Simulated scan of single mutants.
Amino acid sequence: MALTSQMRGTDFYCDVAIPHPDRLDVVYEDEHVLAFHHTRPFWAVHIVVVPKRHIGSLTTVSAEDETDVRELFDVVQTVARDVEREHGAAAVLTNLGAYQDSMHLHVHIHSGGRLDQG
């Protein structure tokens, strides 16, 4: 069964990824943050980093989210550094609004070519 078929709503991370990290190719996990290889990668290297506590988006972050966001970006920095070291380059991206497929703050770290371009 595809992981996305287990979504109950618009939040893949709360519905599937965070409760079932054993079904993912995990790069990093602690009690606050999960980082894993994207289940439907767009780039040759494509890792997603999410806070385990639900935060809707970068634009909805508030003072009460400070600890989670600091921890999230500590992991983003570490993973991006590792990708850059291994592959020579890395990009960091988050989507907002209609660009956001899953309504849970998540950060993409990617490197290499797009998989849809031969």
Rank of each mutant, 00 (worst) to 15 (best):
H106P: 02
V107P: 04
E31Q: 13
H87G: 02
S102I: 01
R85E: 00
H104V: 06
H46L: 08
A44Y: 05
A63I: 09
G118Y: 10
Y28W: 14
G118I: 06
A98N: 12
A44L: 09
L96R: 01
L72R: 08
Q77A: 14
D82S: 04
R85T: 00
H20M: 10
R81E: 13
G56M: 05
D82W: 01
Q6A: 05
E64M: 09
V48M: 12
L34H: 07
R40L: 10
T94E: 10
W43V: 00
P51R: 08
G113E: 11
Q100I: 00
R81C: 04
T67C: 09
Y13Q: 03
A89K: 11
D82P: 01
K52H: 08
H38W: 04
H110R: 02
H38C: 14
A35Y: 04
G56K: 06
H108R: 03
L24T: 04
R23P: 00
R114C: 07
S62A: 14
T94G: 06
A17S: 11
V69I: 14
H37L: 04
F36K: 02
T67S: 14
F12T: 03
H32G: 11
I47P: 06
V79P: 04
D15P: 08
D74V: 12
M103I: 15
V107K: 05
L34Q: 08
V69D: 05
G97A: 07
A63P: 04
S102D: 10
E31V: 13
M103N: 09
S62L: 07
M1K: 07
I47F: 06
I55R: 03
A80R: 03
T60M: 02
S62C: 11
A44Q: 11
S111T: 01
